[in-house]
């Protein structure tokens, strides 16, 4: 077919931030389906809660402190996270490096706390359906936490190599975005796991 050039796009940038970039939408997509996964897991919990006359089954509720400390830390982590976002948008490499290290450390601390939380659930996965669903939900969230921490560490390493090129900054902002999702997902789960059995 004959072609007529009607436009020239040579002046467009070669990467974009946020909704202008492809990977951002990819991350959105995965967050949507993972969010759905959390919703289904919550639904499972509530279903079992509804069909059982006693809850929690044969156990006392989880100890409050690990989840609560995590929740606090998650909320606080939003501050350095948002700062990371800002310096990445400005493509300020030295600051981005520092921020990524800080965020990696926060993630690692949270993973350690998560270990304590498992130990303080006061039930095993094979005790009852209650134990099973609690371990499932916590496990699901931990997978997200761990992958995001892994991702942050890899990005941090990249930023110290010659790969620290402009489009990496876009990757950093996507990572920031994903962290917010991990934080946001924790809040309802925290309420569900730690407070619903106390209602």
């Amino acid at each position: 077919m004959k072609q007529t050039i009607v436009r020239n796009v040579a002046e467009l940038p070669t990467f974009g931030f946020g909704p202008r970039s492809g990977p951002w939408w990819g991350a959105m997509g995965f967050m949507a389906l993972e969010g759905m996964g959390f919703a289904i897991a919550i639904g499972t919990y509530l279903y079992l809660y509804a069909v059982n006359p006693t809850w929690p089954i044969g156990a006392s509720p989880p100890d409050l402190w690990p989840g609560t400390v995590e929740a606090a830390l998650y909320l606080l982590s939003i501050i350095p996270n948002e700062y990371t976002n800002r310096v990445a948008q400005r493509q300020d490499l030295p600051r981005v490096r520092i921020c990524l290290i800080v965020m990696s450390l926060i993630g690692i601390v949270l993973l350690v706390l998560r270990g304590f939380e498992f130990a303080h659930l006061n039930t095993r996965w094979d005790n009852s359906a209650y134990g099973s669903v609690v371990w499932l939900i916590l496990g699901l969230h931990t997978t997200h936490l761990a992958t995001d921490v892994g991702d942050t560490v890899v990005l941090a390493v990249l930023m110290f190599t010659h790969h620290a090129k402009p489009r990496r900054f876009s990757d950093v902002t996507d990572n920031v975005f994903y962290w917010n999702f991990v934080v946001l997902a924790w809040l309802p789960l925290y309420f569900l796991l730690d407070w619903v059995p106390r209602l």
Binding site: T44, L48, N52, W125
Partner: peptide
């Protein structure tokens, strides 16, 4: 050995 579907341990 989780008990999601085990009706004797609270599953359904």
């Amino acid at each position: 050995n989780t008990r999601f579907y085990d009706s004797s341990s609270g599953g359904h």
